[in-house]
Amino acid sequence: MRTNPTGRQLRFGTELRKLRERAGLTSTEAGQLMGIKQTQVSNMEAGRVGVSAERVHTLASHYDCMDRALVQALSDMTAQRVRGWWEEYREILPGSLIDLAEMEHHAIRLTAGITAHVPGLLQIHDHAREVFRQVVPELSPPDIEHRLSFRIKRQAVLFNDSPTPYRAVIHEAALRMQFGGPAVTKKQLRHILDMSEHKHIAVQVIPFAAGAYPGSGQSILYARGAVPQLDTVHLDQSHGSALLDAEAQLDKYRVLLERMTDLALGPHASREFIHDIAQDL
């Protein structure tokens, strides 16, 4: 039995619980239908034990779930028990960062809305190092190096054989923030321009002139799952990160990102905007 389920394992169990609750069944009643103990149902829903694809379909049948796409997506999750590269950092970095990397790895599409920082997936080495130097409480040199290597490895989702489609909506403030000084900032902006040339990557800028907009104080990463019910929102905050998956929360952040995208310049105009900022440095 797992003592520390990963964020993905917890999410899988949560979705099983939602199916049961929609069916109006208690965990005891579900166990009776399955011929298992109530504790086993609870352990499945808490991510503490593995669940086979066959059992997912059996549970869905008992719960009268007619959403075939959701059931298949949950079934597919049982076959994706890979030990990812992020596991080597599990004893070194906060669990929330490990869950973020795993979420990005399994997402079918990623959308970021950023106000004050360049998105982590687009940061160059020198920029990221300076970001970590500003963390409070201060990180030790080894901790900075661990976080730096972890951040760079996360970027593989944009470079592998089947790169994840990615859209970054970045406020002008993040582009003008000089982490590491003018030379590093210019190099960082050039990198964003280079990345935006890839077909699977779209970068849009919200200029200061666009004025106020909802969600302006947050750094948002929206990870789209195989079905909308499996979408996840990652919020990066000063006191730590958070993963959100409640239906109302997902609806809220879809709207926020849609509004940010509508306010932003188009991809071509954004590249010209970034180029002009770099030229001024």
Rank of each mutant, 00 (worst) to 15 (best):
1 M>G: 11
5 P>C: 15
6 T>I: 10
6 T>A: 08
7 G>Y: 01
9 Q>C: 12
9 Q>W: 11
10 L>N: 11
13 G>I: 04
14 T>N: 02
18 K>Q: 13
20 R>Q: 00
22 R>C: 10
26 T>A: 07
27 S>N: 05
28 T>E: 12
28 T>M: 06
29 E>P: 01
34 M>K: 01
34 M>V: 04
36 I>V: 15
39 T>Q: 05
44 M>G: 05
44 M>H: 03
46 A>N: 11
70 L>I: 06
72 Q>I: 09
72 Q>F: 04
73 A>P: 00
76 D>H: 02
78 T>Q: 01
83 R>E: 09
84 G>W: 03
85 W>R: 01
87 E>I: 13
95 G>E: 11
97 L>N: 08
102 E>H: 00
104 E>M: 05
104 E>K: 01
110 L>P: 01
112 A>G: 03
112 A>E: 10
113 G>Y: 10
113 G>F: 10
114 I>N: 01
120 G>D: 00
120 G>S: 01
121 L>Q: 04
122 L>P: 02
127 H>Q: 13
138 E>Q: 11
141 P>T: 11
149 S>P: 02
152 I>W: 04
153 K>Q: 15
154 R>S: 09
156 A>P: 00
156 A>G: 04
159 F>S: 15
165 P>D: 06
169 V>K: 06
174 A>T: 08
178 Q>P: 06
179 F>M: 15
181 G>T: 12
182 P>C: 10
194 D>W: 00
196 S>R: 05
200 H>N: 12
203 V>W: 03
206 I>P: 07
208 F>E: 08
215 G>F: 07
216 S>T: 13
218 Q>P: 03
218 Q>W: 04
220 I>W: 06
222 Y>W: 05
227 V>E: 13
227 V>K: 07
230 L>I: 05
236 D>N: 02
239 H>A: 15
240 G>Q: 10
241 S>N: 07
245 D>E: 14
245 D>W: 03
251 D>A: 14
258 E>T: 15
258 E>Q: 13
258 E>K: 10
262 D>C: 06
263 L>C: 15
265 L>Y: 10
266 G>C: 13
267 P>W: 07
268 H>W: 08
271 R>C: 14
273 F>C: 13
277 I>K: 05
278 A>C: 05
281 L>P: 01
